[in-house]
């Protein structure tokens, strides 16, 4: 089996909304495919079709070589799904949530219990195992939701915006979990609005907008399409974020962007900015924890590809905001 996930010309309309307008995707087994796009681009619809929850109006898709419409039952046995909103039963404990899934998957009660304990341990939820999931924090819920999708040891995992709404710490934890799964051989399709996330996790990225894949390739290939460089800076002391930001803006002539993980970034054209920046920081008694000059981030790639100058009549302002 060459591709774990394969989609060709997926079309889906809801009333007059053309949510998918011919989506093509492939993911090699054991890799992470990042599906990157703004709100309303069609990410969730794509995932729901691949996870057998929706039938496409046109086009076809297979997961693990099985057709998602004709062999839906077999596809379900091979996949795990973590939807956009943590789908845990808030009125059950962490253990009960996982035991329920295990029992539904045909595990005997004892095996379901030990599998639940194993997953709770793996996701640092053992202390909260006996508490109702409704009392969990956002990050804990996400982890429980992810654990629930792993009870059946899926070979293909769908993660729909797994870190949206999480604080930087929980986001980092989730990234580590995804990396661990991939190391175990799971194929992951992950949707995200965060360019940094796709860059961090994905082997291949498909950029999707208005129900179409508008660009694809490795993160490096996408960045090469745009050129230019980005200077990234993480202040050593979080308290110095403000002053560091001011210095960076002055040196580069651009207002820096702050990533959810606390990294400031600005586009630069001139390599000389780097020594100038270091000098100014030292002068001001500020310390850069991490400082790097990189090829353009996916942010710029994305803006170039989707084109902010291009009119987007049927999107409201909120929908065009991309991971900032």
């Amino acid at each position: 089996m060459e591709f774990a996930i394969q989609a060709e010309g997926l079309v889906k309309t809801f009333g007059s909304t053309r949510a998918l307008d011919g989506v093509d995707l492939v993911a090699r087994a054991g890799t992470v495919l990042g599906v990157l796009g703004p709100n309303g681009a069609g990410k969730t619809t794509t995932v729901r079709i691949l996870a057998t929850l929706l039938r496409p109006d046109a086009g076809r898709a297979s997961v693990g070589g099985l057709d998602v419409v004709r062999d839906a039952g077999a596809v379900r046995a091979a996949i795990g799904l973590t939807g956009q909103y943590a789908a845990v039963d808030e009125m059950l404990t962490g253990t009960e949530n996982l035991v329920m899934i295990g029992r539904l998957l045909g595990l005997p009660r004892r095996d379901a219990k030990s599998r639940a304990a194993q997953l709770l341990e793996r996701f640092a939820l053992t202390d909260a195992a006996g508490r109702a999931a409704g009392t969990y924090s956002g990050g804990m819920r996400r982890r429980l939701d992810l654990a629930a999708s792993l009870v059946g040891r899926p070979s293909v995992l769908f993660l729909d915006e797994p870190t949206t709404g999480l604080d930087p710490h929980s986001r980092g934890e989730l990234w580590d979990i995804v990396r661990g799964l991939v190391a175990d051989g799971v194929t992951v399709l992950l949707t995200t609005q965060y360019l940094e996330e796709a860059d961090q996790l994905a082997d291949e990225i498909a950029v999707i907008d208005h129900g179409r894949v508008i660009a694809g390739g490795t993160p490096d290939q996408l960045k090469a399409q745009v050129g230019g460089q980005t200077l990234e800076l993480r202040p050593a002391r979080p308290a110095e974020l403000g002053p560091v930001r001011t210095v960076l803006a002055a040196v580069s002539g651009h207002e820096p962007e702050l990533s959810p993980t606390g990294v400031l970034s600005v586009p630069v054209r001139d390599d000389a900015v780097l020594p100038a920046l270091v000098a100014r920081l030292t002068e001001a008694g500020l310390v850069a924890g991490e400082l790097a000059l990189r090829r353009s981030s996916l942010d710029e790639v994305f803006l170039t590809l989707t084109g902010h100058r291009e009119a987007r009549p049927h999107d409201d302002a909120d929908k065009t905001k991309v991971g900032v």
Binding site: A77, R122, R153, P154, S155, D184, V186
Partner: peptide, 16 residues
């Protein structure tokens, strides 16, 4: 961290 294998033995592909 790596004590658990996620993929060992995928569930049998039952259709019905």
């Amino acid at each position: 961290m790596a004590t658990m294998t996620i993929t060992s033995g995928t569930a049998p592909a039952k259709r019905r």
